[in-house]
């Protein structure tokens, strides 16, 4: 696609290997000096404390410190991977994330596109302002509201269901394990659609209006312009967000699930994050929690590189 710069930008001025490299460094001193502070920052604030990860392989004793705590090898990893609940929490985590990827990921994009097509400027601004309000409502409160709406005894939804004879009995939404995943993903979409759209709205704002004008002259309707002008223009942003969404497939929101969890849906609602919180962090088993976190990070890193590779092959868009 036109936006891939990789191909277009062939190697700069050639020369003999050695001197060429040296002059290249010299000539881009200004450019390098922009990046180095960032690297220095990460070395100090991220790499220096990273020795803390060692406790994943140790039985961390606060008294002895990170370095002097006894080694535990892979026992914490083994504990997690051989846990009888492991398959269950993995399944739940993947199921909710895949669902979120298929339903939750496109939602803010569609919202941003539709918002962009609104003709009334005031209405547009109004909608945009309103849409990100739920982001500021904590999950405890938001989850509580969802539970109230879905309540079998006095929830609005069940009142409607019974009145309209969709079902004779009210449905216990939160007690039905089959519905949990979809309710969870739906709630997340509702809460995050406006906030998630901000980045796409920014991308759309950068689209050259001339492209739209040209398309209009060519006889493209609103929908066609959206499809053939706007979407390709923000594809780079979409792909980057998608790559990161794929790489974080083992992460689930934590608070929201804890709010919606109950003993009847625990079989489908327990995720890696909530489980490790309960049996690790809450018990202050730092080594175990760190080990699971590390394992998750490794998977995420692999997925990131994988998604990046696939994206480069398929769409010519990539992170690196």
């Amino acid at each position: 696609m036109e936006r891939t710069l990789e191909a277009r930008h062939s190697a700069p001025a050639s020369g003999t290997e050695g001197s060429g490299r040296r002059s290249r460094w010299k000539s881009q001193f200004a450019l390098q000096s922009m990046v180095w502070p960032g690297l220095l920052f990460l070395i100090v604030f991220s790499y220096v404390p990273m020795y803390g990860i060692l406790i994943a392989f140790k039985n961390f004793d606060l008294f002895l410190g990170v370095m002097d705590s006894p080694w535990a090898g892979f026992s914490h990893f083994r504990e997690f991977l051989t846990d009888p609940n492991f398959m269950n929490v993995l399944r739940n985590t993947l199921a909710m994330n895949l669902l979120a990827l298929f339903l939750g990921f496109p939602a803010p994009i569609l919202f941003a596109l539709l918002l962009n097509e609104l003709t009334g400027v005031r209405f547009k601004r109004f909608v945009q302002t309103i849409s990100y309000l739920p982001h500021f409502v904590s999950w405890v409160i938001f989850g509580g509201l969802i539970l109230t709406v879905l309540s079998p005894s006095n929830g609005i939804l069940n009142l409607l269901i019974v009145k309209l004879h969709i079902s004779d009995e009210p449905i216990n939404f939160m007690g039905n394990p089959d519905l949990f995943w979809i309710i969870m993903v739906g709630a997340e979409m509702l809460k995050g659609i406006g906030w998630g759209a901000i980045i796409y709205i920014a991308a759309i704002s950068g689209v050259d209006p001339e492209l739209h004008e040209a398309a209009t002259i060519d006889g493209a309707g609103r929908f066609q312009r959206m499809r053939y002008v706007t979407v390709p223009s923000i594809m780079g942003t979409i792909v980057i967000m998608l790559i990161f969404a794929v790489s974080s497939i083992l992460n689930t929101g934590f608070e929201q699930i804890m709010v919606m969890q109950n003993p009847l849906n625990l079989d489908v609602s327990e995720t890696i994050d909530t489980y490790v919180y309960k049996v690790g962090l809450q018990q202050m088993r730092y080594s175990y929690s760190t080990a699971v976190g590390l394992a998750k990070s490794l998977v995420a890193l692999v997925l990131l590189f994988g998604a990046n590779y696939v994206s480069r092959k398929l769409t010519n868009n990539s992170l690196f």
Binding site: L31, Q32, V35
Partner: peptide
């Protein structure tokens, strides 16, 4: 794209997104 060492830099940077020392 002209930046020398760009691909190394980005990997070094992205690595920190996944690993936290505690």
């Amino acid at each position: 794209r002209a930046l020398a060492g760009r691909n190394v830099y980005i990997v070094v940077m992205m690595f920190t997104m996944f690993f936290y020392g505690g």
